[in-house]
């Protein structure tokens, strides 16, 4: 039994050592200078959400958010280190300082703004609802008693919970799963940002966006960890500067034009210089 006692004592000692370490370190976000010094800008991006953030067949990150991410890293003179995240854990990544910035189609809400700091907007959206042509939903009231598919942690989820409590929500962990659920008929309609459903409906015949703009106009902004003022100020400065060269229109042409079609109006989505 002596050996076992030793093992046990060792385990106890380790636990004590760990708890000592706990009090010793308290790391936070990285300031602008720290990022520059490290030579790396860590940005949280979607990796399965075309056309905003996805990985193409050559294995490279692409999309509207990624286009901005590349430019930010370039202007800072550092390399971009992309981190793949999903909608439900975007805030978590910032609060645990795993990323410097989140550029993942992150809609501004007051609730989120208490947890992370948002920079100036670079895009604007409202909610949209897509449903099969055979049972098209054109008014939100039509959804009462029916099942609406949403992705966890999105604006659509909170909007419908608050304003249409009679709508049954089927919540999925990722966008991929949510769209598959709609294709499989596991719900009557799907709601998320209108940009997203409009693009999806074009590529999925048999489905139409019956409600194109629902809820208040939301903006999509870069976000940083709460209190990271140096980084926030730099991003805001950068967005204003990029507005002067119509950067986000170029971004739209490069990444979104193909998705929304030749007739779509870039100005209905793009925000330049952070001005609505």
């Amino acid at each position: 039994m002596k050996k076992l006692n030793k093992i046990f004592a060792l385990a106890l000692a380790l636990t004590l050592l760990l708890s000592l370490l706990v009090t010793a370190s308290a790391e936070g976000f990285r300031t602008l200078d720290e990022i520059k010094a490290s030579g790396k800008l860590v940005i949280g991006l979607f990796s399965d959400k075309k056309p905003f953030g996805y990985i193409d067949e050559t294995g490279e990150y692409q999309g509207y958010d990624v286009y901005l991410a590349r430019r930010l890293a370039e202007d800072l003179g550092v390399t971009l280190e992309p981190v793949s995240l999903d909608a439900p854990n975007r805030i978590e990544f910032l609060q645990s300082f795993k990323v410097d910035i989140v550029l993942a189609n992150f809609t501004y809400t007051e609730e989120r703004a208490t947890q992370v700091d948002f920079a100036l907007p670079y895009m604007k959206v409202a909610l949209g609802v897509v449903s099969p042509d055979s049972a098209l939903i054109t008014e939100p009231e039509q959804l009462n008693g029916k099942t609406l598919i949403v992705s966890k942690g999105t604006t659509a989820e909170t909007f419908f919970e608050k304003n249409y409590p009679e709508v049954k929500l089927a919540k999925y962990d990722s966008y991929t799963e949510a769209y598959i659920a709609l294709l499989d008929g596991r719900g009557d309609a799907l709601s998320t940002d209108n940009t997203e459903v409009l693009a999806w409906a074009i590529e999925n015949p048999g489905f139409t966006v019956g409600i194109e703009s629902l809820g208040s106009l939301d903006t999509i902004n870069p976000a940083v960890s709460k209190g990271n003022e140096t980084l926030l100020a730099w991003i805001n400065e950068e967005i204003v500067k990029l507005g002067a060269e119509k950067f986000f229109h170029a971004d739209y042409e490069a990444t979104l034009r193909e998705t929304y079609g030749a007739n779509a109006d870039a100005d209905s989505l793009v925000v330049e210089g952070g001005e609505l």
Binding site: S47, D48, K49, K50, Y54, I55, S174, Y175, T176
Partner: peptide, 10 residues
């Protein structure tokens, strides 16, 4: 796999 599906959601 999900990233590949993301490329081809059309």
């Amino acid at each position: 796999g999900q990233q590949i599906i993301g490329q081809f959601y059309r």
